[in-house]
Design a binder for these strands. Structure first.
Lengths: 121, 121
DNA sequence: CCAGTCTATCGTCAATCGACGATTTACGTT
DNA sequence: AACGTAAATCGTCGATTGACGATAGACTGG
């Protein structure tokens, strides 16, 4: 049984579940084309007024507002009030944990002595 | 109107929508604690037999199988047949586009002359 | 060749998501 | 004070997701 898996000798992190949930929440915040689009717009321009984002994304105002709410709740963006508008900016850092995980994965790629991955797809 | 947004003079990429969808699909593949957990297990050990993952994740076998299917479909993992088992490994590289986006965001953080972000949460 | 093991698929059900229009809130302007 | 604009919230509806048990498929070992 499990010939290729060492007997789980590594330090079993107790509350890894919490991290899993946190990372999953971050990923979920990005798990929609409209939200990716918003992040990219905010990455190009340094910040952007909400109503411009509505034009940019091409969905109803209420829908875009909902996507902004999700991103804000995840901490990915922040909004500074400029009445009657709101100026959104990226809140970097928030994505750091997810970026770190992905970096680890890519790192293993670089180290990669991957045995050709014949796959079974 | 939109005092802080330049008039969108930048090179408007025609099929940015496709990239958005692609990135969103990758993020979605990671948008669940169980799938994050699987990725992390595969990152620690270099590869792992499916039935061990079932133990590790702690959900029903059929549920774990479904999560594995999602990750496989997104290209995040591959499975090599070792009858009657299947040995799963990370397929790095697949996550590169998402990692690149996140790296860009964090990079802007580093450059960061962020104006104190007073927020309106 | 039959039994056992591991994995994938199917069917079902509750819960969540995503989109929209309509409405409300909160301002600046005239 | 009345109006206009930008954003958030509400209610609804269809689609998707996530979980599970049951079942089917594929091969190994006795």
């Amino acid at each position: 049984m499990s010939a290729c898996c060492p007997p789980s000798s590594g330090p079993r992190v107790a509350d890894a579940t919490l991290d899993d949930a946190r990372l999953a929440r971050l990923a979920k915040a990005l798990a929609h084309p409209a939200r990716i689009h918003i992040v990219r717009v905010l990455l190009e321009r340094r910040s952007c007024i909400g109503c411009d984002l509505v034009d940019e994304v091409g969905l109803a105002q209420s829908t875009v507002s909902e996507h902004l709410r999700i991103l804000k709740q995840a901490g990915v963006i922040t909004g500074r009030i400029e009445r009657p508008r709101i100026c959104y900016s990226l809140a970097p850092g928030a994505l750091a944990p997810l970026a770190a995980l992905l970096a680890s994965v890519l790192e293993q790629d670089a180290a990669g002595i991957w045995p050709a991955t014949p796959a079974e797809d």
